[in-house]
Amino acid sequence: MGRVLPVLGSRRALHVVERNAMFYRNQWLMFASGFVEPLFYLLSIGIGLNHLVGTLDVGGRPVTYATFVAPGMLATSAMNGAIIDSVFNPFFRLKISHAYDSMLTTPLDVGDIALGEALWALARTGLYAVSFVGCMFALGDASSPLALLEIPGALATSFAFASLGLAACTYLRSWQDFDLITLFSLPLFLFSATFFPLSLYPRLLATLVWFSPLYQSATLLRGLNVGHLDPWMIPRLAYLCALGIIGLAIAARRFRRLLSP
């Protein structure tokens, strides 16, 4: 592994994952409670908006509004979770507690830290996605077995945002700068065709939305959710993975520059 990913870290990155798991060991209730959150959202939408909005078309099939929205929310939660794990926590260890500096006095390398944090974000998203998809099946918002593929889809989403977030956190100067992250993630959340189909957007905006990784993710997951495979899924997935690799490479370089000049 060390030889396969010389720039990005080694097997030791798993120790960083272990460290984060150790932290949550004492806070398991909070960790576990994350898994019920999607239930609230899906229930609320199912109760109220299914009835008001009627059915929408996904891959040529009519679906309820909750079925339409749920994959978008899974994509959004993969994004938000990745941002929390890759921006807030690493920023604290990078610039406030300087915990990374002490980790670098051990055999761990800068690349191990960057990769480890990204892996942790992935692991957490993976668990969350499993429970989310479980809730979707339970509430009837997913029915096709292909919906299980939403889990790896959510992982790709998380990988893209976790890597970009990790790169971004190295540029932040203080807690105040987190507003900039919100300024980035908020429009993505609201305007990535998560709540309504792209066809409702004005043409110019629709072109912009097309570049949004969250839109690509939501659309990918939505197709999988109803079991409708189409060839466009491949470039969407590739786009997310490419962002992840670019982000991780930048993050590893920036980490090296800050921690080991």
């Binding site: 080694s10 507690s97 300087h98 915990a99 500096d101 002490s102 006095t105 051990t106 055999p107 761990l108």
Partner: peptide, 17 residues
């Protein structure tokens, strides 16, 4: 990495988790 495995370092600032 190998060298750091044999070192102990007490940095100027106390940096804990």
């Amino acid at each position: 990495s190998e060298i750091r495995g044999r070192l102990g370092v007490v940095p100027q600032e106390d940096t804990f988790d």
